[in-house]
Every structure is written in structure tokens, then in C-alpha cells.
Amino acid sequence: MSDARILELDGVEVRHGSVAAVRDLDLHLLEGEIVGLIGPNGAGKSTTLHAIMGVLAPRAGEIRLKGRPLRAGRPEDVARAGIALVPEGRRIFGDLSVEENLRLGLAARRGGDGGSALDAVYELFPILAASRGRQAGALSGGQQQQLAIGRALVASPDVLLLDEPSLGLAPTVVDVVFAALAAIRERGVSVLLVEQRAQRTVAFADRTYVLGNGELRMILTPADADDTERMIAAYLS
């Protein structure tokens, strides 16, 4: 089952008004895989994530989770089907406590013990355990990012989508986030990582899709990470 396609985008096109933000995109994730998605600003990375979550409706093509097509328009259903998003800018509920933020993530959980899911997150991110009663808005940027990831994980998703999780974080905190992603993969969760840090993402992910102007330019492997010319070509093509 290890080569089963858990998430699959098939010829997806998404438009913002009359402009095609993503065109004819084929993309898939295997079980337990970390897949990167990079490209310059406006390449269609976030649009792709929003299409998967059902926030934006594709004009053409299909998005399938474990072989079953996802319907657009109701993000809560997509979340409940097993896809969790760590949104750009983290989107923490600043007025709620850390624990309340995590409990919100349980909304998408399909059965099972919510308490143990929270404990598992506290184990992964000890800093959250130490500040569980604090207002989330009072946390530092790095702590908020860990909270956002933890909040997605308590739902026990099959697929975790991350929209630029390292944005605005100090280098040491970025290391923490990437280490956490590796640990998450160990639990059998597939990860789709949208990032600006191209080289690091290519080296870290099993495969990395490069988007440009809404289209798939190429697929890179970790071996390409040190091939500077190929990396530059990926962005400039």
C-alpha cells in the first residue's frame, strides 16, 4: 500500500475572475510522503492549497482523496475527510488559550480519543504544554507556528498541508519546524509543504513540484538541491 496515491490532483484549473491562477495541474502525494511545492510569488501555490481545501472551486479537473473526489465549497467537509491545513500567517485565535486553540482542531477529528491527541501534540511541542493556559496571542511567532501545526495534527489527518510555515521565523525556529515535519511523517501522515525556501525544501522533501505562472514547470528530487543551475532554471523558466 506504500505507493497508494492518497491525494491526487488531476488536470486542475483554478481561476480568479478571468485570470487562470492554476492551469492543468497534475500532482499527487503517496502515503507517508513529504512533497514540496515551490515557485515564485504568484505562481499559484496558495491557490492550489485553497483548491484542495475546497475554499476555491476548480474550473476543470478533479481533486481526489484516497480515490474519492472532493467537493468544493465546504472546507469543513474537506477537513473532516482527513486533510488539515496550516494556513499562511498561522491564523491563531489570539483571544483563546493555547489549549482552546488545540481543542478547536478536534472539530475535524473522526472518532478516537481527543485527549490523547492533545497529549501527543504536547509531546511533539513541549513549549505548548508549558503554556497551555496562556492566551495564544501572547505567544512568539515560532510558538504560534508550532501551535498552528499542533492544531492541525490533533485532527489526526491523513494529509497535512502547510502554507509557508517558515515565513518570518528565526533560523533556529525554522529548524524546529522542519524537525517536527520529519516526526510527523514518521507517524504516517503525508505532507504537502508550500515554501519559499527552495533549496532547503528540495533537499528535505521526497519530491518537489515547481510551479511557475500557474503551471507545473518540473519535479525535483533531493539530488537536485545542490545543482544550483537546475534550481535557478526552475525559477526562471
Binding site: 481545501m53 475554499v55 465546504r74 472546507p75 469543513e76 477537513a79 473532516r80 488539515a84 491545513l85 494556513p87 491564523r91 485565535f93 489570539g94 483571544d95 483563546l96 478547536l104 482542531g105 472539530a107 475535524a108 477529528r109 492544531r151 492541525a152 485532527a155
Partner: peptide, 13 residues
């Protein structure tokens, strides 16, 4: 506080 994010977390609107 933020309905959009709440829905993304699986909260049924």
C-alpha cells in the same frame, strides 16, 4: 473571531 479559519479546522458553519 475568524469564521474562515474555523471552517478550515472542520467547524461546521
Amino acid at each position: 473571531a475568524d469564521f474562515r479559519t474555523a471552517r478550515l479546522l472542520g467547524v461546521r458553519a
